[in-house]
């Protein structure tokens, strides 16, 4: 596998073979990953083969039972739902966020930083207060409903709070900045002259956009998709509050094993399988990404 010339996402053709210094400099990050990602994962792996006592303490007694339960179709359905919500959220975030990132990147430098900060500042308020503010807007006799009623758009009070639609609104709101910021990071370096050159060659704005701009900002788009889609799969606090907690997400199921059911070994098994599925999917995506861009 290491024989392949370019293996990682970021390999550039100019990448060097690391000598001593390359490894020394990378060491702190590697140590961090080992200590705070690999070791905890190993602890979980051990837990997932254990049983528990009546107080919920882990008992080191080997069992496969936790893994037998993980593959119950019910959990697959829940996982499917979580992935569906996350995918929809990612799609909407991309549509909403791309033009914003592009627009910000076209401004003068101090305006750019200023706008970027403005994107993020709403999220420095408390999560719960923000979510309750959304509920005030979306509730049956709330702001949005009142506005639409008085404009005559809808005949009866809006019943959107505590539905999947409200959950999606909440998710999109929460993750939008994580789409805008990475795209901005890669759109900022595009030269205005380049875009105009594409234009001068006879491409209309739509073609210039889709054939020049989008491909050039693709690394940012891919990063944005990664930063929105992946965390959104495990999200459940927003879906519970705004969607009414009527359907479980994979995040709920895992969370509840630790917090409600007192079943840490099963929670650990779910966590391990969930993480492994991600690792496999991510690795496949990396390979395909490589082979399509030789």
């Amino acid at each position: 596998m290491q024989a392949l010339p370019s293996t990682s996402l970021t390999d550039s053709p100019h990448a060097l073979r690391p000598r001593v210094w390359g490894w020394v400099l990378l060491a702190p990050m590697l140590a961090w990953l080992v200590l705070f990602v690999l070791v905890p994962m190993a602890i979980l792996l051990v837990y997932s083969f254990c049983t528990r006592d009546d107080l919920g303490r882990v008992v080191f007694e080997f069992t496969f039972e936790n893994y037998q339960r993980v593959f119950d179709p019910i959990y697959l359905r829940i996982l499917g739902r979580s992935i569906g919500y996350a995918a929809l959220t990612t799609g909407i975030c991309l549509l909403m966020g791309y033009p914003v990132a592009w627009f910000i990147a076209r401004q003068r430098e101090n305006v750019r930083n200023w706008l970027l900060l403005l994107v993020m500042i709403p999220f420095w308020t408390s999560f719960l207060i923000r979510t309750y503010a959304w509920m005030t807007i979306l509730k049956g006799n709330g702001l949005l409903s009142g506005l639409l009623l008085s404009a005559g758009v809808i005949p009866a009070p809006l019943e959107i709070l505590y539905t999947p639609a409200a959950a999606i609104i909440g998710l999109v709101y929460a993750y939008l900045p994580f789409m805008i910021l990475p795209i901005y990071g890669s759109a900022e370096k595009l030269d205005n002259a380049l875009v105009e050159a594409a234009h001068d060659l006879g491409a209309g704005p739509v073609r210039a956009f889709s054939e020049v701009i989008v491909p050039l900002t693709w690394p940012g788009i891919a990063a944005g998709i990664l930063l929105v889609f992946v965390p959104a799969i495990g999200m459940f606090a927003i879906t519970d509050l705004m969607g009414g907690a009527r359907v479980p997400m994979i995040g709920n199921v895992i969370h509840n094993q630790f917090i409600k059911a007192g079943n840490q070994p099963f929670g650990a098994a779910l966590g391990i399988i969930f993480t492994l599925m991600f690792v496999v999917a991510y690795t496949l995506a990396q390979r395909r990404g490589r082979s399509s861009h030789p």
Partner: peptide
């Protein structure tokens, strides 16, 4: 340990 049974039923019902 039967707390886990309730959680399983609850998840299933939802």
């Amino acid at each position: 340990t039967s707390g886990a049974l309730i959680d399983e039923l609850f998840t299933d019902l939802k």
